[in-house]
Design a protein around this nucleic acid. Structure first.
Length: 284
DNA sequence: AAACCGAACAACCGCGGACAT
DNA sequence: AATGTCCGCGGTTGTTCGGTT
């Protein structure tokens, strides 16, 4: 069979994403989910291929991504998991909540390989056993892997100095609630030419329950809205929220957001203040 | 101050598997 | 069973940034 090129149509944009594109993608997925990546960019009005959208979302924009430096525990876990799983980054990422396969892959190539190279091959250390880059192939290894797959995802507190700083850690809902001023300060003072505040990456959202992202946030009795471009800014919606990068997005009140109103409020607050602008928060 | 260089990381590419028709 | 489409994965590349000379 012949595979159609990902971006067969000319004019599709490549390269770094702009804040405006991010905003459109985030807003679209919040409203409609991402059932069909291929169709998504067209419906959302993005000049990107679906693949690019998926990558951007999964590696950068997803709300549950933990930004910031890897803790020592996380690094050790990556090393151990890599020892067992090989270069199966997605499998490793599945054991490290909030970390993406791409991020883990980068950390491995930039930090951990070097760290391992420096370490003496001492069998007493968990990372010193013989490594492989290929996935396990024999039955013992696969049964071992099956055990790994039964493990619960690991949770690591961010405890190293860098991740403790405001510049690197993700902002929890609780922190947002109690210290909004720091968020404002970061957004105001750390902007660079990219349009993103340095300290406030798009990944710094409060964690949401799964329902938040699986639910369609906005519903209308009269039926579906298929044209996102028309939907944003539409006048048929209940509430309006001014999003810094243009589109006007509206949504239902708080019950659609998840279980915690404060989380939701903080989410939007963080979202909007990324552009250094105070939002017009919806009235919940 | 400018040039250079390496590290870090975001993004792209191509392949293969899963699923639908 | 064959074919087509979509998605996810791993490898790789390109760009940016910070440190050094």
């Amino acid at each position: 069979m012949v595979r159609a090129p990902c971006c067969e149509k000319m004019g599709l944009k490549k390269g770094p994403w702009t804040p405006e594109e991010d905003q459109i993608l985030i807003t679209y997925i919040q409203l409609y989910g991402h059932g069909n990546w291929r169709a998504l960019p067209k419906q959302a009005g993005l000049l990107r291929c679906g693949k690019s959208c998926r990558l951007r979302w999964t590696n950068y924009l997803r709300p549950d991504i933990k930004r910031g430096n890897f803790s020592r525990e996380e690094e050790d876990a990556i090393i151990n998991l890599h020892e067992m799983l090989g270069n199966r980054w997605s499998a490793i990422a599945a054991r490290l909540p909030g970390r993406t396969d791409n991020e883990i892959k980068n950390v491995w190539h930039t930090h951990l390989k070097k760290r391992l190279a420096k370490q003496p091959q001492d069998s007493s250390t968990p990372t010193a056993t013989k490594r492989r880059s290929a996935p396990p192939t024999n039955t013992f290894e696969y049964s071992h892997e099956a055990k790994i797959n039964e493990l619960e995802p690991m949770n690591f507190p961010s405890h190293d100095a860098a991740s403790e700083s405001l510049e690197h850690r993700a902002v929890s809902p609780q922190e947002c609630s109690s210290d909004l001023s720091s968020t404002i300060t970061m957004a105001d003072n750390n902007s660079d030419n990219s349009g993103y505040p340095k300290a406030e990456s798009p990944g710094n959202f409060p964690e949401m329950d799964e329902n938040f992202w699986s639910e369609v946030l906005w519903t209308e009795d009269s039926g579906e809205v298929n044209d996102f471009s028309a939907a944003v800014g539409g006048d048929h919606l209940d509430q309006e929220v001014q999003i810094p990068f243009s589109p006007i997005v509206s949504m239902e009140p708080v019950h659609s957001f998840g279980s915690n109103m404060h989380d939701n409020m903080d989410f939007w607050f963080n979202l909007f203040t990324r552009a250094g602008e105070l939002p017009q928060l919806p009235e919940f």
